[in-house]
Design a protein around this nucleic acid. Structure first.
Lengths: 143, 143
DNA sequence: GCTAATAGTTAACAAAGTTAACTATTAAGA
DNA sequence: TCTTAATAGTTAACTTTGTTAACTATTAGC
């Protein structure tokens, strides 16, 4: 591995450790980080389906199913059977769920805050563009 | 949230989802991603202790203890009681463990590979520097 | 030397992942 | 049209891995 790549590898390792460490943190606003991520996904992908969520999070349908059961019981999301294809249930967040997303100081927001505070406008734009470029390449060919 | 920060937030969200998704992937070379991360940490922090690992991964000492039990049983790491302070057990990876780290096409290496392939030398250096700057700021003040 | 602190382990439990087998529904083809 | 295959989602049984509480062994402080 060349020197530049190695340097990137190391900072990326730190980033991954940091992200993973934050998944184990306790709940904020009554929901865990995992629940929060699910709610936010549904918020940003209104009317999405369970299958779609399972794929996005790379977890099995039963895992998704159980999480939804919990989130529905908590009144954070709702399901509605599609009239066109009754196998499908469309998802949306409730007012309570939306409130949590809108008012949570979540982990990503904290990182974005730090990034925007500590980098110049040009640097932040550059970081976003570069990260995005790498993510695109990974996404298209699959890691 | 301003526009640039929002843009960063979004690409960072994609990155987080991607990292989390890869933690659920099955095993490679007979070890899961979680085990791999532990082995690699011990490899890169030779003679470290359980307490240190627990702190680095933000997991409790019993969780670390159980993982070590498994990794020792698999012959991937070894423990040795410190002669100076017999409460402490120093860790190191075995030859088998080292082989896995050296020969694993791990997730981070794949990302580093893509980054180095798809960015110019200047871009890669810039990305590393910017990421590192943000990580430092997060680390120092705690997220 | 007694007491407090530290490193690590064991036990009991909870959360969240998995696969296998199921229901309900839709699509497809003889 | 009717049977068969495929799809979306659920339930059950199990595994992994996290947690806290309580424990042992060892060291440090007065």
């Amino acid at each position: 591995m060349n020197k530049d790549k190695q340097a990137f590898y190391e900072v990326f390792t730190a980033l991954q450790c940091f992200i993973l460490a934050h998944m184990h943190k306790g709940e904020v606003n009554g929901v865990t980080a995992t629940h929060y991520n699910l709610i936010e996904y549904i918020y940003r992908h209104d009317q999405c389906t369970g299958k779609q969520v399972a794929k996005a999070f790379n977890i099995s349908p039963p895992a998704v199913s159980r999480q939804f059961k919990f989130l529905i019981a908590q009144g954070l999301i709702e399901q509605e059977q599609s009239p066109e294809d009754r196998r499908i249930f469309h998802l949306r967040v409730t007012g309570k769920g939306r409130f949590i997303v809108d008012n949570s100081e979540n982990f990503r927001e904290t990182v974005a805050q730090k990034a925007s505070q500590n980098l110049s406008k040009t640097e932040l734009k550059s970081l976003t563009a570069l990260l995005s470029k790498v993510m695109d390449k990974i996404g298209t060919k699959g890691a």
